[in-house]
């Protein structure tokens, strides 16, 4: 394995991606809305009830929801008043699945660009003639998407931690974010997530016509997370520490499976549609 070649390809991919508006725009805008604007909207919501059409009744409903959740969540939310519960519930629990969208989205957009996009732009051919092995090419392409997704997620997390605490400060009066569940999420689940986006994209890229095409197919990886979000909001489930840990385990296993499948069929010739 030639680490020098792998790092050269990663450097190239990241440089190319960073110059690509079609890729960078969603990578910047979505986190900005989720992590910077949303915390302030959420903390203001209960007080701007008229604007948002939220009544005391709704706040009670949130309380009802929480009452149905696991002991861990109830324990954490015990000592808070109605408004605080609303804020903490949203910023800590409801946001968690949304946060997971970021590494998924970033990885699949970048993989769409670096597999299908390169095929479309025909920039891949010269790369195929370099003294790299198929495996090195595959690993380099995976790693560049993985690293970019993790970098965005990490920056997003720090940004969000600051914004959530700042926005909630007037009501909570102390640092409430991140809790243990989030720490597990960030250290265990989030690093696994890009693997899903990348794995799926590797499998579909050989069939996709180009970047847009691959990107659309790739966006299905976000679906499971959307279900998670719905589950969380509807109270059907709640993200407790054990559940998050289990979720991470499942994702890591899926990563392994997808990447094994992808690497098995990855041949440099396929990047030419051959």
């Amino acid at each position: 394995m030639n680490a020098h070649a792998i790092s050269a390809i990663i450097r190239k991919d990241l440089k190319v991606v960073s110059q690509n508006k079609g890729v960078m725009l969603p990578i910047i805008i979505l986190p900005l809305i989720l992590f910077v604007i949303l915390p302030w909207v959420v903390t203001l919501m209960p007080f701007l009830g008229d604007v948002f059409g939220i009544t005391v009744d709704d706040l009670n409903k949130v309380q009802d929801l929480i009452n149905r959740m696991g002991a861990g969540v109830q324990q954490e939310l015990a000592g808070y008043d109605q408004y605080q519960v609303f804020v903490v519930y949203f910023l800590v629990y409801v946001m968690a699945p949304f946060f997971m969208i970021i590494p998924l989205m970033v990885s699949s957009v970048i993989a769409a660009d670096s597999f299908a996009g390169e095929k479309e732009r025909k920039t891949m051919e010269a790369l195929l003639y370099t003294p790299t092995t198929d495996r090195e090419l595959f690993i380099a392409k995976l790693l560049s998407g993985w690293l970019a997704a993790l970098a965005v997620a990490l920056v997003g997390f720090v940004l969000y931690a600051i914004m959530a605490n700042a926005a909630g400060w007037s009501q909570i009066g102390r640092i409430f974010f991140p809790n243990t569940m989030w720490l597990v999420l960030i250290s265990w689940v989030v690093p696994a997530l890009p693997g899903l986006g990348l794995g799926v994209m590797v499998l579909v890229s050989s069939r996709a016509q180009g970047f847009q095409d691959a990107n659309q197919i790739g966006s299905v990886v976000v679906l499971p997370v959307v279900f998670l979000a719905i589950g969380q909001v509807s109270g059907a489930m709640s993200l407790s520490v054990p559940l998050v840990f289990l979720l991470g385990l499942v994702i890591w296993l899926l990563d392994g499976l997808l990447i094994w499948l992808g690497s098995r069929s990855f041949k440099r010739g396929r990047m030419l549609g051959a």
């Binding site: 070649a5 390809i9 110059q19 732009r121 920039t123 891949m124 010269a126 003294p131």
Partner: peptide, 20 residues
């Protein structure tokens, strides 16, 4: 098959790395 978003210099220097 050049990376059109990169400069000529960057294109060459990346391939210089790849060709060791």
């Amino acid at each position: 098959s050049m990376d059109e978003r990169l400069t000529a210099w960057d294109n060459l220097s990346i391939y210089a790395d790849l060709y060791r």
